[in-house]
Design a protein around this nucleic acid. Structure first.
Lengths: 213, 213
DNA sequence: GGCAGGTTTAACCGATTGGTCAAACCGATT
DNA sequence: AATCGGTTTGACCAATCGGTTAAACCTGCC
């Protein structure tokens, strides 16, 4: 049953255990939230002494910070690669970004739950904002050419709208599972949701073109 | 400094204190979440003995259940009244519902944060679903005439989409406050967001009409 | 005045929490 | 073999947690 090798007190073993702790923390954070997660529980899930968690991450808040950092970095990289890699009309590039967004979240379903928990909780707002800011700035600049700088059609509105259209689906999925036929997190259901968002986005872009012209 | 009257051990005083506890719990729940909120803290905020909380609500979970029930009932009533009270095209009725949604949340800004917290946390999923179900069923029936029963344009997709467009704005507001100029929860900003959602909804309805015809 | 029943209180409980600390451990360097 | 620095461990701590209990309290009723 033992898959973990015997303890080796080396630097690389340290990074290894730190990563194991991070994985465990991520899982428990998504299930129970920051306050619902206990450091002891994380240590137990990672098969590691509790004090090691504090040794590697200093505090419980530091642990969550590390989890968030890992996610946001990967998230931003994914979107940036999608947008800059896509070619053709701005429309197709935006579709590519949404697809990448869906693919990323579908692969990391814990991510939206963790974010939503923390966003809705006072106290960690600064931490979230700090991580969200580059993502926000980047999308705002990417959309700046298409949209007015202010008012109901400003880029920032669409940032909230489209990220919400995607992320909200996943956070509500466990609730929807009891209200819909089938599993909202199944492959087909996710594909259907993706089509839905694409459809709405096309209607929005049509409307923007009409207003501009 | 004393505004609360001296203790009166009567039935109606009991309901009064129960209501005070409920108010305090609501505030702390919105700030810190279920696990972040302590019963002692609630009692202190309500200027009430801690044991009274258990006397009136049996348990911490019972307390949150009471908070949620109060919100969901009012929420559903508000939407239903808006939709049934509005006249004319389905389009204008839907706009009326969205307006009512905005007005309700703008008046009860703690509501979306509490919901989002709980939705994103495993364990309380059943409780949330139980309260959300009538709201979901009702909107699904109300939209059934306009939309296909399945696929990317099914009513359930739009339920998630439009409730998300509204509610997500408020939950993200504390974060956006540091990224936007001005206060996202100010009157003008909320009005701007409302216009934004209305605009998107119109584009969607235009698209549905075009596809149908 | 006394009884009844719902309300309020203080004291208390076991369990769990985040966090600390000094010592043990281990591989690498000399 | 001695030592150095990063890693791991178990034991420990004060604080806080949700929840209980028995008694005191107050009001209305007879």
């Amino acid at each position: 049953m033992k898959r973990t090798e015997p303890t080796k007190h080396t630097v690389e073993s340290g990074q290894q255990t730190a990563s194991r702790i991070l994985d465990a923390a991520e899982a428990l954070l998504a299930e129970a939230g920051f306050d619902g997660m206990s450091v002891g529980g994380v240590a137990q899930a990672a098969e590691v002494n509790k004090a090691l968690v504090f040794y590697h991450f200093k505090s419980k808040a530091g642990l969550m910070d590390a989890v968030l950092a890992r996610y946001y970095d990967a998230h931003l990289d994914t979107l940036r690669a999608a947008f800059e890699g896509a070619q053709g009309h701005p429309r197709s590039r935006l579709h590519a970004v949404v697809d990448a967004y869906f693919a990323y979240i579908a692969q990391h379903q814990r991510y939206p739950r963790i974010i939503q928990q923390q966003v809705a909780t006072a106290g960690t707002t600064d931490l979230i904002r700090q991580h969200l800011e580059p993502l926000f700035r980047w999308t705002e600049e990417a959309l700046a050419a298409l949209l007015p700088a202010a008012g109901p059609l400003a880029a920032r509105q669409f940032f909230v709208s489209f990220s919400g259209l995607v992320i909200n689906y996943f956070t509500y999925a466990p609730v929807l599972a009891g209200l819909w036929p089938g599993d909202p997190l199944g492959t087909e259901a996710i594909a259907e949701r993706r089509d839905h968002v694409h459809w709405i986005m096309d209607r929005v872009l049509d409307g923007l073109g009409a207003e501009a012209g």
